[in-house]
Amino acid sequence: MYETGNAKQIKMQRILLYVFFTILTMLSILPFWIVIVNSTRSAPEIQQGLSLIPSGNAWSNWTHLRDRGFNIFQGYGNSFFIAASSTILSLYFSSLTAYALIVYEFKGKKFMWGIILMLIMIPTQVSIIGFYRFIANIGLLNNYIPLILPAVASAPTVFFMKQYLETIYHPALVDSARIDGASELKIFHTIILPLMRPALATMAIFGFIGSWNNFLLPLILINERSMYTLPMLVQLLTTDGYRTEFGAMYMGITLSIVPLILIYTFLSRYIIGGVTAGGVKQ
């Protein structure tokens, strides 16, 4: 279709673009790589200059970090517990809400849908002051409940679930079960939820990562050191105690990012797919 004189030009363009993409790729990876490499180097080595080759000091950095009371395993545990519980809640109740919005006709349905759309746009950060006072008033500071339970009303997840259900739902799916006398809730559990598996998987990844990365809410609600989540632990690395222990500090950062990098290595295809399908933003 194109005249052959163009072929050379296109080839040149392609090469230039691949070079450019490679530069951007380096930009994505290098900051993490430098940190990971530095977590294996001693403080003097780090002070000498930049290196991209790991050294052999990882274990001593790790013991320094541990001796400073940086309990990374507790952080993993706390963050995992919060992220897993809130993800399960948000998946289950968002699907249930989406199902209600699609299958039933009831008064106030349009109004609820309007609320959900507005909730997507208005972030929770704008009401943290009221949220904090409310939680303090009912005595739930230093408790994971206010970090987990709000996931029941997760508007973006409902939106995504509804979009998905709309494409697969047909009344015939549930008709025979109804004739057999199955309850509505049983129909939802045995027929609808299994059908929604792909959407559930996508939102599970995003919900989990979103909760795992949340910093502001736990910062406000949790004081107890043993209850710190991972981002709160990471925050400690900026304090004076690490001003000389560079290796230990880099080890701390590394340990906080490695789980996510591993997850991403395996799931990036689904994550990119989720972003493409729904414009999901954390």
Binding site: S28, I29, P31, F32, I209, W212, N213, F215, L230, P231, M232, V234, Q235, I253, S256, I257, L260, I261, I263, Y264, S268, I271, I272, V275, Q282
Partner: peptide, 10 residues
């Protein structure tokens, strides 16, 4: 897209 999923605090 990678940097987007890494904890902002980190």
């Amino acid at each position: 897209y990678l940097p987007n999923i890494i904890t902002a605090a980190s």
